[in-house]
Amino acid sequence: MVALAGASFAGEIPQAERRSGYELMSRETRAMQDDDTANPGMLAVLEGGALWARKTGAGGRACADCHGDARAGMKGVAARYPAYDAALKRPVNLEQRINRCRTERQQAPALAYESRELLALTAYVARQSRGLPIDITVDARTQPFLDSGRAAFYRRQGQLNLACSQCHDDHWGRRLAGNTIPQAHPTGYPVYRLEWQSLGSLQRRLRNCLVGIRAEPYEYGAPEMVELELFLMWRARGMAIETPGVRP
């Protein structure tokens, strides 16, 4: 009984016990992620590569015109995001960073969240960091945002009155409606989710969870979402980027 009670309120997962969702997947789904010609996320990466080189907007510039070859220039970038933006005085995630480049440098309209183009570009940029450890910088400027992300993770919310931590810290590896509960490390985003039959961002996944606990989800790009993203990436620090991941 004592051991059971201990397992129920495990608290923060020790560094050595952290597992990517990949390790909790079936053999078949893992094989799908591992093989670049079987991984449907690679279709988006392919498309993102084409968008990277395409000139757009009033600026008439392509991503490649400033950043050059993404394989060199974008290596490790996704492992650092969300990162502090000095102009906005707050952290921005990779999608927001791409859109800021679009509106300011390319003078093109911002891409909508979960649009095919934005997911493709994000997947293409994040793909260049595959295998690299997540490396979130925490300093005096980002600490308050990290703290509020952490508070959101441990805050009970919604009609079911559940906190993220109650599933993902305390009960990972157990089952919820037939699915294995993962530890919620965002290592493979944007991820190809078999349930969605498409690629989706971390924010789409977070909104899924919020609806699941019957809380009102934050809007796409809301500051609260980015803070939660920042905390989750920090929580997964040192773990390898898998983009494009495949999840059940």
Partner: peptide
């Protein structure tokens, strides 16, 4: 031979 194509189906 392996093939994968992008389509919503």
């Amino acid at each position: 031979i392996k093939t994968l194509i992008s389509h919503p189906m």
